[in-house]
Design a protein around this nucleic acid. Structure first.
Length: 221
DNA sequence: CCAGACGTTGTT
DNA sequence: GTCTGG
DNA sequence: CCAGACGTTGTT
DNA sequence: GTCTGG
């Protein structure tokens, strides 16, 4: 699955890469569920970048707390689940990142070793996500979830799920509002190429979501 | 018809 | 909101 | 994902 | 154990 990631790039890099204005943000070495994360959505005829709370709160939810359980959505069943089905056609988003963490359960069955996974030369990439808007008389709450898939050859040694990563044309398809065919959309939700991905162990400092500094991404010696 | 669920992961 | 179960 | 809390009453 | 918070 995907329950933690990094976005250490600067606002300038993001703006250049996506040709979009981005709001101010600080580099984050330990992005955790419930936090506000940067996302790109299709607004009107244009793309738009802004913050969404990580942990999907469907529009019909009675209580925001459901979001703590909805940090991921399985790509295989996206078009069947009531919480996600309706979002697949009209509420897709991309979530920029430059690494993500997965915890590997050691053979003793108790301890877990965190790994950081990166793409290419540590370059920026995007997760495929879905978003929704929840509102009461007092507030509006925008939230999102990250889509997962089965692991590629590299990831299966660490965990049995991995986030869906989109690049190039697939990013355009995902944000194209004219495309609503679920077969076309589901067809791009695949495990990323293991040959362009690397994983390295990191300190358990990353376990605590309050730790947010370069030590989180330092390779374990 | 109304009531009630709506999710993923990991662990047992 | 939308679907499943009774 | 992991960390950390998990409770009520009465008094200050 | 289970739920909330980050």
């Amino acid at each position: 699955m995907c329950g933690r990631f990094t976005l250490t790039a600067t606002k300038g890099t993001l703006q250049e890469q996506f040709s979009l204005p981005f709001p101010e943000f600080t580099p984050n070495y330990n992005v955790a569920p419930s936090q506000q994360i940067l996302a790109i959505v299709s607004g009107g005829n244009e793309k738009k970048a802004g913050f969404l709370h990580w942990g999907l709160v469907p529009s019909w939810a009675k209580d925001k707390k459901i979001g703590y359980k909805m940090i991921n959505a399985r790509s295989e069943t996206l078009d069947e689940k009531p919480a996600f089905k309706r979002l697949l056609s009209r509420r897709r988003c991309l979530i920029p990142a430059d690494g993500f963490y997965e915890w590997k359960r050691e053979d003793d069955g108790k301890t877990k070793q965190p790994f950081r996974i990166t793409i290419g030369n540590g370059q920026l990439f995007t997760f495929a996500g879905l978003w929704d808007k929840w509102r009461t008389e007092e507030e509006e709450y925008f939230s999102c979830t990250i889509i997962t898939t089965k692991p590629n050859q590299l990831m299966e040694s660490i965990h049995d799920r991995m986030p869906v990563i989109l690049e190039g044309d697939d990013q355009d398809i995902w944000l194209n509002k004219d495309i609503e065919d679920k077969h076309i959309l589901k067809n791009i939700l695949n495990p990323y190429d293991a040959n362009n991905m690397s994983a390295y162990p990191v300190s358990t400092l990353v376990n605590n979501p309050r730790n947010n500094n370069e030590a989180c991404i330092d390779p374990l010696s």
